[in-house]
Amino acid sequence: MSAPPPVHAEVTLTVNGLRHSLVLDTRTSLLDLLRERLDLTGSKKGCDHGQCGACTILIDGRRANACLALAVAHDGARIETVEGLAGEDGELHALQSAFIEHDAFQCGYCTPGQLCSAVAMLEEIQRGWPSAVTGEDPVAPTRAEIRERMSGNLCRCGAYVNIVEAIADVAEMP
């Protein structure tokens, strides 16, 4: 039995403020779309199974694993990647500066996912979303909260201590 032919579909997405319309194989993940079709290679393919977080992007403002998201299923979505974090003048996002300041990486492969995840994670705290370590009191950005909420982003170099400090710095924790 021969393999069935690929199926194609048209998808329109806004990526870092730019609108793209493409015809894609329905099997294409958002991660492969970004990396292979739009040359946005900041988002990294670590495990391709949703277990490492290196591909974390923002879909309509919410963090998600781009490897497990089919592009056709997100037609019309607004996507933000690590390439969109810095200002148009090239000024780094506060989290990017804090990661450099705190030496929050070694090889850097997980860093784009860590950054996108952290941006959305701080917004989730502001929105009052609880985590598994949130008690009865209103949500506060403690280091315990940061560690729990960033558990979907693995760092094989083990830079976790400095990643937490970089995020805590931006969250204005003492």
Partner: peptide, 16 residues
Amino acid sequence: LAQALLNGASGQLRNL
């Protein structure tokens, strides 16, 4: 129920 959900998967996966 809230606790069970928050003890499952990661922030990224729970959003999807």
